[in-house]
Amino acid sequence: LQPLPDLLLIEGNKALAVPKIEVHRPSLGRPLLAADDPCIMAVATDSVLDIPGVQLDLNTPSAIARFIRQWIKKED
């Protein structure tokens, strides 16, 4: 048996019940999903949103990576 990965990145599959980071660009005019999806643990955005919870700067990939690393450490 091969060991399972610590992290699997998937695009799409919004209905899948797994921990997620939503990528949200308000300028595209699409609705924010985080309010209705308890699996969304953070929102990566290029704007400041008036929502509770973790917001990550979409233009700072290192901050997103740091958040993911911290989350993986908590799950161990």
Rank of each mutant, 00 (worst) to 15 (best):
L16D: 03
T45I: 08
D6I: 01
N59E: 13
I72C: 01
Q55R: 01
C39K: 05
A63N: 12
H24P: 07
D37Y: 05
L56N: 02
I10R: 01
A44L: 03
K20M: 04
A65G: 07
R25M: 13
K74M: 14
L8Q: 11
V18M: 12
I51Q: 02
Q55A: 00
P26G: 11
C39E: 13
A63E: 14
A42S: 04
K20L: 09
V18P: 00
A65C: 11
P38E: 08
E75G: 14
P61L: 00
L49F: 02
S62C: 06
R66G: 13
P31I: 04
L16M: 15
I51P: 09
L58P: 01
D57P: 06
G12D: 04
I72A: 05
A63R: 12
L8D: 01
H24D: 05
G12V: 09
K73A: 15
A42L: 10
M41E: 12
D36V: 02
L33S: 05
G53Q: 01
E75D: 09
E22D: 04
G29F: 03
V23M: 14
N59C: 07
H24I: 07
V54N: 06
V23G: 14
L16V: 11
K14S: 11
V23P: 09
I64L: 09
L9F: 12
G12F: 03
S47Y: 11
P52Q: 05
P3E: 14
I64K: 01
L28P: 10
H24S: 05
S27K: 12
K73D: 15
T60A: 15
G12A: 09
S47V: 01
R69L: 12
S62I: 10
H24T: 06
R69A: 11
P26L: 06
I21H: 08
G12W: 01
P3C: 03
K14D: 12
L8R: 12
G53H: 07
P5S: 12
V23H: 10
R30G: 11
D57N: 15
R69K: 10
G12Q: 06
P61W: 09
I10Y: 07
E11K: 09
L4E: 14
